[in-house]
Design a protein around this nucleic acid. Structure first.
Lengths: 344, 344
DNA sequence: GAATTTTACGCAACCGTTTGCGTGAAAATA
DNA sequence: TATTTTCACGCAAACGGTTGCGTAAAATTC
């Protein structure tokens, strides 16, 4: 039968006939409290099993030592790795992490932000929904002095804190590699037009072709809405061309899984009849028999833990009275091509 | 330049020359406050953009509307699905979720529990570390009236709340299926001896063999410490027998991935020379060419969301004054065999 | 022994909100 | 007009801990 009441400072004070302030100071070994009193306080505290109610302290400090993380979908290894990055960083700073999955739904994202505001998190890390194109819900956090750092899926704005990944380096390595081993007809299966990531890939694709002196052929640029049926349709379209590409850059690993299944069903052999480059979301390629030639690593953990670092910087800066309006914290990590060929 | 001060009840009170209590009541449309006053309060509140500081309320209520979830490793799809289950349940009850990954490390688990206690979560959901065999750290939460519900990896005790998964049903289906299609020599690659899950699988394995009138052969029962090298060793041992098993129950999907790779490297064909049954942790089998014959589903989402339901029940009950010591909430979900054969 | 410093502690406010109780004034009743 | 009821609101305590300031008593200095 656990007593409903936890020992408090007042309880200790009552037992020793001293004031609560004396107890508080004694517990912190404040020099202005006599040695005997201090010792007696500690003794009673131990007897009662006293532990400070951090919630009371946090409330007074107007802090929660909690940050919120908003991510689209935990079932994607990319985001669960990202969450782990946040958690590790938070643990090191003695912060807690509350999570919210937007499931790529804008309304959910808004609700989550609202909820985190209500819970007065000290800061927010966010990776945007595919649908998100307005940011008032995040802007509203400024009113509460809750800093926000975005990562990976970041708003297309200049005045924000973010850590993102630059696909150029990885894609350039990948396409150059394809060219090196003889590919001259490199297709692209891109994502939905409204995604920033889609436009980004397209631009870089063009750029990388140009750097390798390859012509652009609109026929080998297709797109998918990321649904399975549409993925299959996209690769089918490429395969049915008179002159199909010999290599394809694929929007992400999930799309690629469907592509590979389709290619195999068509009796073609991956990495012989057609090769793929994808983006590293999935950790299971080493166990697959048909794999992309290479994968572009976007460093989820690194991105998110760096974003968390930014966030703690902002949180700590906000406490300083020298309220210098520091410029936005921004960092872009270079992607890297991960070569899968030696494994074979 | 955001004002550092958020509007409070006192601020509104000052502006209207009324007391804070009047404002508070007016905001809640309490009948004892006059209509004009109530309206003026609402007006000023709107002007100032007042929003109640929930932290203050929660502090007064001695609640946080936050529950903690302790899981071994988010990178395992099983646990990320479980976390999603918790989050969905929490959202429905207007609770927040803070997470802690134990990484199967007992000391970390203890620290996480400690931390959650400090943050005065209203309840804890936990899936144990592989190393956990004592439970004082969880017991200590009773002192703070923080209920705990375990799921999937639960303590071997009677006096706890839990939701677990019964492997019997799934394994019986699986072994019966193997027998039905002609297998009589069914091996087992089990996990480390100290794991409860290992003993459990072994017992059920014996039981299922008996129910199918199959003899026990210790030669085809091996174990692995779950490391890659050891996984390979385990399957190699079986393959090198004079009379290898034609089917093998494998501890989990991760072990199975290594087994399949080894089998293929040995020139054998999965589902022809040797078949496997595993436990459904990984969602990617549909994209693999070599898959287990069937997989035993343990319903991560269902387990965790049901556990969350139990937890909220306990939290709500604790608030009622009728402190009936309700018996532990316990539920066991039947596992199910998921057949992969029709896919081929 | 008087003046000054040091020691050791208490008071009260504060964080933001809620709520039991009390009270003056207006309204209703006798 | 005197008494009771209703209305509309304020006071103060409470949640648990922290902290600036004030002060009585003891210790030190001259």
């Amino acid at each position: 039968m656990s007593k409903n009441k936890l020992p408090t400072i007042k309880e200790i004070a009552k037992r020793l006939n001293v004031s609560a302030s004396t107890v508080s100071r004694a517990l912190h070994d404040h020099p202005s409290i006599g040695l005997v009193t201090t010792m007696r306080v500690h003794k009673v505290a131990k007897e009662l099993g006293y532990e400070a109610n951090k919630m009371a302290i946090y409330f007074k400090e107007r802090k929660t030592y909690t940050i919120g993380v908003i991510i689209p979908d935990l079932s994607e290894p990319f985001f669960s790795a990202a969450l782990t990055g946040v958690e590790d960083a938070a643990e090191a700073s003695n912060y807690n992490v509350i999570i919210g999955q937007s499931l790529d739904n804008f309304e959910r994202e808004k609700k989550i932000v609202e909820n985190m505001k209500d819970h007065r998190v000290d800061g927010v890390l966010a990776s945007l929904t595919k649908e998100t194109s307005t940011y008032e819900h995040f802007d509203s956090l400024k009113k509460y002095n809750i800093p926000v750092v975005f990562f990976d899926r970041v708003p297309n704005r200049k005045d924000i804190n973010y850590v993102a990944c630059n696909l150029v380096s990885g894609m350039l390595q990948a396409i150059t590699k394809l060219v090196d081993i003889g590919h001259t007809r490199i297709g692209l299966i891109n994502g939905p037009a409204k995604l920033a990531a889609t436009l980004q890939r397209l631009e870089i694709y063009f750029r990388c072709l140009k750097e390798n002196n390859l012509p652009v052929d609109q026929d080998i640029i297709v797109s998918t809405t990321l649904g399975k049926a549409d993925n299959v349709k996209a690769i089918d379209k490429l395969l049915s061309l008179d002159e199909p590409p010999t290599a394809v850059i694929v929007f992400n690993d999930y799309v690629l899984l469907d592509c590979i299944a389709t290619v195999k069903a068509a009796g073609l052999i991956v990495n012989k009849d057609i090769s793929f480059i994808s983006f590293a979301n999935l950790p299971i390629w080493e166990y697959m028999d048909s794999v992309p030639l290479a994968s572009i690593e976007q460093f989820a953990y690194k991105q998110s833990s760096m974003a968390a670092g930014f966030l703690f910087e902002l949180i700590n800066n906000a406490e300083k009275p020298n309220a210098i309006d520091i410029p936005p914290l921004q960092h872009i990590i270079d992607s890297e091509m991960i070569d899968y060929t030696p494994a074979k």
